[in-house]
């Protein structure tokens, strides 16, 4: 579904990601791990179009027959073809209500023009109702419906994380990128998150690519794992293989 071919990202003299290659197949949960500053978020930024890779290319094929080269698309176009993400430091629309946050996730599918929206012409009201129903369904599924009228920033941390995922799901992605979903969570919340990730994967028929520091989460939910260190790919394989890979242990713990 997602093929990352040999991408390199240079910022001036700094090589953030060096010739990284990876593949995410349909219905998989793939993890991307590595010590701080390894270039994980840079990989995500390249997949979502925030950065253009200096070298290499990324191909996204949501189905057999169509595939897109992501390096020519802008972030909003990438969202439209079915890749959506969450952020390491939560980026909700803080002063908007929980409902509006999810509602905005639907905006990219709106077909009505500006004037028919302002004058509430039938084609718009029909679409708007669908968008509301969809948002309501998502909020109910993700257990946030009770808080629908609250401002996003007033939610507790764990719920903000969940709302961010709800908002991303509203764009109807085929591939969901989660950037450290368990950051700042206690063990119990982490446990719930793992359940949650598995649940949404089934419910919404998703393929998930995630960055995580909590080894528990990575080992618990991922089918395959890629390991980055200093921008370079050092290992990949199943959670078991990774756990026993000497290179990975070296990158994380160092050697004498």
């Amino acid at each position: 579904m997602l093929k990352i071919n040999n991408i390199t990202m240079r910022f001036g003299g700094v090589v953030a990601v060096n010739a990284f290659t990876a593949e995410v197949k349909k219905d998989e949960i793939v993890g991307l791990i590595g010590p701080n500053g390894a270039g994980k978020t840079t990989v995500f930024n390249m997949v979502t179009g925030v950065y253009k890779p200096t070298e290499g290319n990324i191909v996204f094929s949501p189905s057999e027959e169509n595939s897109h080269s992501l390096s020519t698309l802008s972030p909003d176009e990438i969202a439209k073809i079915g890749i959506c993400r969450t952020f390491q430091n939560i980026r909700l629309f803080k002063h908007l209500s929980v409902m509006d946050n999810v509602f905005i996730g639907n905006h990219l599918r709106l077909k009505s023009g500006l004037l028919s929206s302002v004058f509430r012409l039938p084609n718009y009201t029909k679409e708007e109702k669908e968008m509301y129903d969809k948002s309501k369904y998502l909020l109910e599924k993700l257990d946030l419906y009770e808080e629908k009228d609250e401002k996003a920033f007033s939610l507790p941390y764990g719920k903000q994380r969940r709302l961010e995922i709800a908002r991303a799901l509203a764009t109807e992605p085929k591939l969901l990128l989660l950037d450290e979903p368990a950051a700042g969570m206690n063990p119990q919340e982490t446990q719930e998150l793992m359940e949650f990730i598995r649940k949404i994967k089934e419910e919404f028929n998703l393929t998930i690519f995630l960055i995580e520091h909590h080894m528990e989460v990575v080992m618990g939910v991922c089918d395959r794992i890629y390991v980055l260190d200093h921008g370079a790919h050092i290992a990949d394989g199943s959670p078991n293989e990774i756990q026993n890979n000497p290179k990975v242990i070296e990158a994380y713990l160092g050697v004498d």
Binding site: P75, C84, R91, I104, S112
Partner: peptide, 21 residues
């Protein structure tokens, strides 16, 4: 309307708004 909400989303966080399509 949906457009107005998109405007507010841009005000709140451009990066997030952009990645929401």
């Amino acid at each position: 309307s949906s457009y107005g909400k998109a405007f507010k989303a841009i005000r709140e966080d451009e990066i997030a708004a952009r990645s929401m399509g």
